[in-house]
Structure formats: structure tokens, C-alpha cells
Simulated scan of single mutants.
Amino acid sequence: MGLTALVRRVGRTRWFARIGRATSGIDRRLHKASRGRLSVLGRPTLPHLVLTTTGRTSGQPREAVLLYAVDGDGWVLIGSNWGQERHPAWSGNLLADPRATVTVAGRTTPVVATLADVDERARLLPALLRVWPGYADYADRTDRELRVFRLAPA
């Protein structure tokens, strides 16, 4: 079993989610310092990007390193927050101001985010689950519906 398959498998567990939450700040700094070449797990083997939103309260730039799926010329994100009861801050920031940037492989692109409606969510969710099957487990751990966003180049 390769590293990506192993990470996808253990990524469904509660203990992995706890580790992910605890190391997200470190991962973000490591990702930024290495220009996307390194993560807490070593060389990233899953598609990841840096999403920069505007803080809905502070007005300051906020960064999150997230897995994504591709949809045409855009990117698809899910606000899993590791299956916690609250939505991740970045998703609330996108609802307040859908303008953001994504950085993939060192290239930054301005984007506009759209919260997926029921039909679009049904279309986009399988691609996200192919990237990270654990999203299904995270959804089962919470009563909230995980927000799915499509980010289109601005």
C-alpha cells in the first residue's frame, strides 16, 4: 500500500482528525515556507491549495491549506472541519465575502466562491470523496451539512 492510500485510509479515523486539527497551523507554515513542496506528512501526495480569504470580523487575510478537487477551470472545497460541530472559519469568510485567492504549486489566482446548491453539491461531492474518502466519515460525525464551494477564477 502506497503512502497516499495509507493516509486516505487512516484519514477516516477520529484520532487522525485530532492530529490534523492539532497540526494545521504547523502545516500551513511549513507549506508556505516550502512553497507547497512539504507538509506535516512530508511531500504532499494529495491535491492541496492555500485558500486566502478575508476574515469576516477582522478584515485581515486568513490562510488555510485545504484538499481540493478540480471542476473544469475551478476548484472545489468542502468545509469538513474534521467532522467537528462548527463550520470552519474559512467557509464563513467565503459566505461573507466570496472573493479570495487560491495558490496551487506556487501560482496564485484570484477566485470567486459560490456555495453549491443541492444539485451542484450532488454533482461535486463524488469528486471530493475520490480525493479524500474521509469526508463521508466527517459528515457522519456531525449534524451539520458540510458546505461545498466551487471557486471560479475571477
Rank of each mutant, 00 (worst) to 15 (best):
G134L: 09
V50D: 02
G74R: 01
T54F: 01
P98H: 00
A5I: 09
S80W: 09
D143P: 11
R62C: 03
T23R: 12
A116N: 06
L115W: 08
A122N: 08
W90G: 01
A89P: 08
Y138P: 00
R86I: 02
G72Q: 07
R86G: 03
L49M: 07
R12V: 05
D117V: 07
W15H: 10
V7E: 07
G59D: 10
R9M: 14
R141W: 09
R8W: 12
H31I: 06
L3P: 04
R141A: 04
T108C: 12
P133C: 11
W75N: 00
R121C: 11
R150H: 14
S80P: 10
L146Q: 05
I78S: 09
A33W: 11
E145L: 02
R28Y: 05
L51Y: 06
V111Y: 01
A89K: 10
A22G: 11
P44G: 03
V118C: 12
M1Q: 14
L151R: 09
A64P: 09
Q84F: 00
R147W: 05
G55M: 06
V148T: 11
D143Y: 11
L38D: 01
Q60A: 11
Y138L: 06
S58D: 14
T13D: 01
M1Y: 13
L146P: 00
R150L: 12
V131K: 01
P44W: 02
D73P: 10
L129Y: 13
A113D: 06
G74V: 06
D143Q: 13
V7G: 00
A122S: 12
V148E: 06
R147V: 02
P98D: 07
G25Q: 03
F149R: 04
F149E: 04
Y135N: 02
L95W: 07
G79N: 02
S24A: 13
R147I: 01
M1E: 15
Y68Q: 00
T52D: 02
Q60D: 13
A154R: 09
H31G: 03
A139K: 14
E85H: 11
P133H: 14
S91G: 04
S80H: 08
S91H: 03
V40Q: 09
A69S: 12
P110Q: 10
P88G: 08
R62D: 05
P110D: 14
A116C: 11
A22R: 14
A113H: 02
V70K: 14
A5Q: 15
I19W: 14
V7F: 10
A139R: 15
G83I: 06
G20V: 07
L38H: 05
A100N: 06
R14Y: 06
H31P: 04
Y135S: 04
V148P: 02
L49Q: 01
P126N: 12
Y138E: 06
L94F: 04
R99G: 13
R147F: 04
L41F: 12
P133Y: 12
L115C: 14
G55K: 00
R147Y: 11
G79I: 01
A64D: 10
R107C: 12
G79V: 07
G72W: 07
G42P: 10
A89M: 13
V50F: 03
V104N: 02
G72A: 07
D73V: 14
T13I: 03
A69W: 06
R56D: 06
G25I: 04
A113S: 06
V148A: 08
L51D: 01
L94W: 00
T45S: 08
V118W: 11
D73N: 15
L95P: 01
T13Y: 05
P153Q: 13
R8E: 15
G36V: 10
V131T: 07
R62Y: 05
R29G: 02
E63M: 10
